[in-house]
Structure formats: structure tokens, C-alpha cells
Simulated scan of single mutants.
Amino acid sequence: MSQIPMTVQGAEALRLELHELKSVKRPIIIQAIAEARAHGDLKENAEYHAAREQQGFCEGRIQDIEGKLSNAQIIDISKMPNTGKVIFGSTVTILNLDTDEQVTYRIVGDDEADIKNNLISVNSPIARGLIGKTTDDVVNITTPKGVVEFEITDVKYI
């Protein structure tokens, strides 16, 4: 598996989730399985089957997170000199030249992307259009509504 780019914050969030799954959820599920087993016949024991299913989801997520962390290339943008160039991890403010609407995005890894918090995937059309450009550049980005012209007004490495 190839390296997966990830911000420091994204890696920390995955580590916290992994810790929560291993130290809190896993023991709760194990306890639920033990209690359901105590009820007797396992063939028709819905609580037991539900707990086992929950255990499968939990263990699958643990393996998924461990795999992502082991293949992560953690990039700390705050330690890089700000050249004004849009790169992975940078926070970019763009101005829609048609509507004069200004929006700020942070370019992050696929697993960290959350459009509600203005975190966009490095593989998204907007990020791909911005990567490599610098402050004051005008870029044309294909969106579902068609091609939109944006001006990069600010690039921060935070």
C-alpha cells in the first residue's frame, strides 16, 4: 500500500478514535457478549448476535485505522516556510469572481475531508485546481455548475 498524506491533526484524530475503540468500546462489547452468553441458548439469542455484530464492526474499524496510520505520511505544514504556494495542508482563501463570494478551505487527506468544516480532500476538483498555484493567481475550476473562475486571495501554512 502506498503512502497516504495526512495532516498532523488528522493523524491525531485517528489516534484518539483508535484509543477510544480499544480502551472503551471494545471492553463494553466484550461485557455485552458475556452477559448475552449467560442468557443461555446462543442460536436464538438476539442480544448475543447483535453484540457479536457490533464487535465485528469495532474490530474492522480498529484494523482500518491501524492500517491508515501505518501507511500515513504525516505532513506538518506549520514547520514549512510559507512561499504563498498552495500545497497539501495549506489553508487557502479563494474569491469567486462571478459572485464575489469568498471562502476558505484547508486541503487535507481523503479521510480528514469534511466540507461542513471547510476541509477539502486533496483529490477534490477544487483542491486539484488550486495545488501548485500562488496568491493572486486566477484559476478556472470545473464544478457541478460548470467552470467557475476563482482568485486565490490568501494562502496560510497553519
Rank of each mutant, 00 (worst) to 15 (best):
L95I: 07
V86F: 05
I75M: 10
Q73C: 10
T83Y: 01
G84H: 12
P81W: 09
I75W: 03
N71D: 08
T83A: 07
K79P: 03
I74Y: 06
K85P: 09
T83H: 03
D76W: 01
P81T: 12
I94P: 09
P81Y: 13
A72Q: 04
V92P: 05
K79F: 10
T93Q: 09
G89S: 02
K85S: 06
G84E: 10
I87R: 06
T83P: 05
P81D: 14
T93V: 08
N71E: 09
V86Q: 08
K79N: 06
I87P: 09
E101R: 11
F88S: 08
I87C: 07
L95N: 14
I74G: 01
I77H: 01
P81K: 13
I87W: 07
N71Y: 11
E101A: 10
D100M: 14
D100P: 09
I75Y: 10
I75E: 12
I87S: 08
M80L: 15
T93L: 05
L97Q: 14
T83V: 04
K79V: 08
I75D: 12
L97T: 14
Q73W: 05
V86C: 12
S78Q: 14
I94R: 03
D98Y: 10
S70K: 15
T93Y: 07
G84V: 11
D100S: 13
I74R: 01
I94C: 08
G89F: 02
K79G: 08
V92I: 12
L69G: 10
T83L: 08
A72S: 04
I74H: 03
T91S: 14
D76A: 00
T83D: 05
T99F: 00
F88R: 02
F88P: 05
V86L: 05
E101G: 07
V86S: 09
I77A: 02
G84A: 14
I75H: 11
T99C: 03
G89Y: 00
D76I: 00
N96Q: 03
I74D: 02
Q73I: 05
E101P: 05
I94L: 13
T91D: 11
D76E: 04
G89E: 01
I74N: 03
T93S: 15
S78T: 15
V86T: 05
I77L: 02
T83G: 04
F88Q: 02
V86K: 06
T83F: 03
I87M: 14
G89W: 00
V92G: 06
M80F: 13
D98H: 14
T91C: 09
I77S: 04
L97G: 06
E101Y: 08
N82I: 00
K85L: 12
I75C: 06
L69T: 12
G84R: 07
